[in-house]
């Protein structure tokens, strides 16, 4: 951890003044917000992130969970992950989200981590964390250690030659499936970012994780009215039963009409630099009978461009099986 200064403003405006004028995206910023601290302080200790100043936003409010006028739910950016997961409205109307949050981290970390911070989690790639190794995400231009190294946990979709890291969040996979909207405040006022546009693929600039500007603050995450409470699930596959990052996870949500799928949402975690959605795979499900065959076909479509590395090719088959399992569970289809 490098030397940094610390400030605790008492309003959103004061917090924004603290980051005003910073160029670029929040990933690269020298002045950073800290709330839960669970990822940022970890990375600072590992010398991976080196902010010069921390602006503590943990007391700005922004921690409420409120109904929105259109029947959706607004999750305060500073509401804790645990409070969000156990919120009665979230559990009743967005059970997939609750399940996803509770599949992540530990009870202690969920008590600390905020919803906004969850979106800004950085990859758990070994090379990113180890400053003794090359990593384009940490040190642009040094190369990707994982590409020809130990890459069992790495991406099979949307990766580039510069980076094969994956996004580690569970919550974000469910938010992606729900078409959540990220509300941010910045120097020009408020704006909204559709969830699909919030995270990015690595391309040749893997050091940038998201589209959040360095002078912006996440204030809330809006959940649309459609929560798929009747037919959804979150399935996480990992190397131990708890407290491990996903090798593959699936958020599956369906709107059913009898045995026919009217609307389908499918998002994958652990496979790409961002929560992975694929309109073609969802279209493959729409209008079809809920059957294992349908689910397998959708999985094949979603994984059509999947590419394995030396240690992670198993993820392709695993993802296919996990998609089928999750969709079957969401649809209530007997899996045998």
């Amino acid at each position: 951890m490098r030397a940094f200064s610390y400030d605790r403003p008492d309003s959103v405006d004061a917090a924004l003044r603290g980051v005003a004028g910073q160029p670029g995206t929040t990933t690269e910023a020298a002045v950073k917000f800290v709330a839960g601290g669970t990822n940022l302080l970890d990375l600072m200790k590992a010398d991976v992130m080196r902010p010069e100043r921390l602006v503590d936003i943990s007391r700005l409010g922004l921690d409420r969970i409120e109904d929105t006028d259109d029947g959706g739910l607004r999750l305060g950016a500073l509401a804790r992950n645990a409070d969000t997961a156990y919120d009665a409205r979230v559990q009743a109307r967005y059970p997939m989200l609750s399940k996803a949050i509770l599949a992540g981290a530990s009870a202690q970390l969920r008590n600390m981590a905020t919803n906004g911070g969850n979106l800004l989690q950085r990859t758990r790639c070994y090379y990113f964390y180890d400053t003794g190794t090359p990593c384009n995400k940490r040190e642009p231009g040094t190369g990707c250690g994982a590409l020809t190294g130990v890459n069992r946990i790495h991406a099979i979709l949307g990766a580039s030659d510069s980076c094969i890291a994956v996004h580690p969040s569970d919550m974000c996979v469910a938010l992606a499936a729900l078409d959540a909207v990220v509300r941010v405040s910045g120097p020009k006022g408020e704006r909204t970012i559709p969830f699909a546009d919030f995270h990015r693929l690595p391309g040749d600039t893997p050091h940038i994780d998201s589209s959040l500007a360095a002078d912006e603050l996440i204030t809330a995450i809006d959940l649309p009215v459609q929560g798929f409470a009747d037919h959804s699930t979150y399935l996480k596959v990992r190397d131990r039963a708890s407290y491990a990052f996903a090798l593959v996870s699936v958020a599956a949500a369906l709107k059913m009409d009898g045995q026919t799928i009217r609307t389908a949402r499918l998002a994958l975690g652990g496979v790409a630099h961002k929560p992975w959605r694929d309109p073609a795979a969802e279209a493959e499900l729409t209008g079809k009978p809920a059957s294992l065959e349908t689910f397998r076909e959708a999985a094949r479509v979603l994984l059509r461009d999947a590419k394995g590395q030396s240690h992670n090719a198993f993820k392709i088959g695993l993802a296919e099986r996990a998609i089928v399992r999750a969709l079957a569970e969401a649809a209530g289809v007997e899996h045998s």
Binding site: R124, Y126, Y127, G132, G149, V150, D239, R240, A241, S242
Partner: peptide
């Protein structure tokens, strides 16, 4: 290539947790 253990922390070197 690096001759280095890569998963050198409790997040990625998995020991059993209570749920196991």
């Amino acid at each position: 290539r690096l001759g280095r253990f890569m998963n050198h922390d409790f997040g990625e070197y998995h020991i059993p947790v209570n749920a196991d």
